[in-house]
Every structure is written in C-alpha cells, then in structure tokens.
Design a protein around this nucleic acid. Structure first.
Length: 292
DNA sequence: GTGTTTGTTATCAA
DNA sequence: CTTGATAACAAACA
C-alpha cells in the first residue's frame, strides 16, 4: 500500500533517474491504465521529457516539458514504478558480483506491467500494477489544478497547523478517528498502515468518535502524523506486500511497525497482545492497553 | 469456493 | 448541500 512515505520515496528516486531524459518509446500494455486513451498518451509522451515530478498526498504529478499537460500517476494498492538501466549495464553488474534485488534480476516487463517508457539513454520505466486500480493519466493544467484542490494539507507543510487539525474534530465530530485520518480531503497522504501507526503513537483507539477525543489527544495525534511519516520516509517506506521503490528495492520500515499486521503479537511497549478489528471498513490494529 | 487485502469513488440515508 | 456509512471495484493468495 503505497502511502505518503512510499510515494515520496519513489518520487525522489525518479527525480534522480528520469528527469529531463528524452522519452523515445512508449509501450501501453493495458489501455485502462492510461484512462482508455492509449493513442493520445503515446503521442503526448513520445519525444517529450519529464521536467518535474511533484507529489500531493499519494498522487504523483509528472510535468511534461513540451506542452502544458501533465501525467497524473496513482499507484492505488499494487502499483509500482520501477526504473531499470539498459540490459547491458545490468549484466555487467551481475558479472561484477554486485548484489541485486529480486526485481533487478526479474525480467521486466512482466505480466503486471501496464506501461513502459523507454528513454534515450536506454533506461526504462515500468509501471506495474497487479490489480489495475492505479493509473497514469494525461491531464491538462486546469484538470490538474482541480484534482489537487481536493487534497487536504500536506502533513509536512506549514498549512498543517494544530488550529486546522483540531477544528476537524469539531466539524467531523461524529466521524471515527480512523476515517478522519484516512480522508484525503482532510489530511493528505495517510493510508491504512500509517493511520493505525499514528493512532498507536498517540495512544488513541482508531474506533473512537472524533468528538470524544480530548484536546490533549488531538495534540498527540497532530504531533504523531509528521513524526511517524518522517520515520517511515527515513526507512524508505513499508513493504507489506507489493511496495518496491523506483530501484525495485523493498521498504525497511516493516520491522519498525508497532501495530500494523502485528495482531496476535505482543505490543513492543507493554507486551499486551495486539488486536485486530474492522473500523471504517478497513482492517485496524491497536494495543488494548496503550491505546485508550 | 470463501474470505481477506485497501485507495478511492459511487451510492444511499439522514 | 453536507456528513457518514457502506458497497463495489480488481487480482491474488491462504
């Protein structure tokens, strides 16, 4: 589940790898992944290059150099954006005895590859997406602006203030804390993993009503959001199932998770067995002792 | 065959 | 119109 730390890890990797490189070939293996406009997609990208890569929440915006259009890339649940250098260099690396990850050795494209971009230096960017929820879609400036407008503040930005955050608990007093954290229009970038981790960090149960959360607890949640996300970003994200970064490497935050996917295991803080339940339609993990 | 996984959106009720 | 709850989507795996 690529959430803010995973998407940001990918974005930073891609900035180093593909920025301003000429796209010489575009292969679309699955037309719905590009919004059913395969021909337009190929035409807009071929001969063009990516001038900037921005991120808003879990959405990446690839700004094209020629023209005013951008490509909106959303990985949803199982999307990957993996860059590989030309085959020759990979063979040399293997011959040189360097350790490579599974996906470096794996042959791309594979059966889940939906789009491939080939650059003039021989590098290739593969968009893999097992479940086909994700997309790479062309969008002109007004559409991009409209889409970005629907996002709440970035947790690392100045716009994310405690004044704003605490107001949410009044305006959305009947919502569950978990639902509030997952709502991209309120706060951008949290998904199922980090919503649970933030709740543990703050000592608040995810199934509480926002209106019942005290100011002190709101403050803890507010402080925990950037804290947990920064921690995860430092470790290059969490690989629960599908996540790989732009080099095909797994995220290292998996070992640091306190509650997510740890049901039946002892709490790292108090030893109580972590429980799993369903909140806001999602699998939800919490420590019955540490979280009130 | 069944249940489960989740980001987002559609749909419905209040 | 707003808010909140829930189903649906899609593919793979235990």
């Amino acid at each position: 589940m690529p959430e803010l730390p995973e998407v940001e890890t990918i974005r930073r990797g891609l900035v180093k790898k593909i920025l301003n490189k000429k796209i010489v070939h575009v292969q679309v293996y699955h037309h719905t992944s590009v919004g059913n406009v395969k021909t337009k997609f190929v035409q807009a990208l071929t001969g063009n290059s990516i001038a900037a890569i921005e991120r808003r929440g879990k959405l990446m915006v690839f700004q094209l150099k020629k023209g005013t259009k951008s490509v909106l890339a959303h990985l949803k649940m199982t999307g990957q954006l993996i860059y590989e250098r030309e085959i020759k260099k990979r063979v040399e690396l293997v011959a040189g005895g360097h350790k490579l990850s599974e996906s470096d050795i794996e042959n791309l494209p594979n059966k889940h590859t939906r789009v491939a971009l080939v650059f003039s230096d021989g590098g290739q960017l593969f968009f893999n997406d097992m479940r086909i929820f994700g997309y790479m879609k062309l969008a002109d400036a007004p559409v991009v602006a409209k889409v970005l407008q629907n996002f709440g503040p970035e947790p690392f930005s100045k716009a994310f203030t405690f004044f704003y955050f605490s107001l949410l608990f009044i305006k959305r007093s009947r919502a569950l804390v978990k639902a509030l954290l997952l709502n991209q229009e309120l706060v951008a970038g949290l998904g199922n993993i980090y919503a649970d981790e933030v709740c543990f960090c703050a000592g608040v149960r995810p199934m509480r009503r926002a209106g019942d959360v005290t100011k002190a607890e709101q403050k803890k949640l507010f402080d925990c959001i950037p804290k947990i996300l920064k921690e995860a970003l430092f470790h290059r994200g969490t690989t629960f199932r599908n996540f790989l970064d732009s080099s095909g490497r797994k995220g290292n935050y998996t070992d640091f998770l306190r509650v997510y996917d740890r049901d039946g295991e002892p709490c790292k803080k108090c030893g109580t067995i972590i429980k799993k339940t369903r909140v806001a339609g999602r699998g939800t993990h919490f420590c019955p002792t540490c979280q009130k």
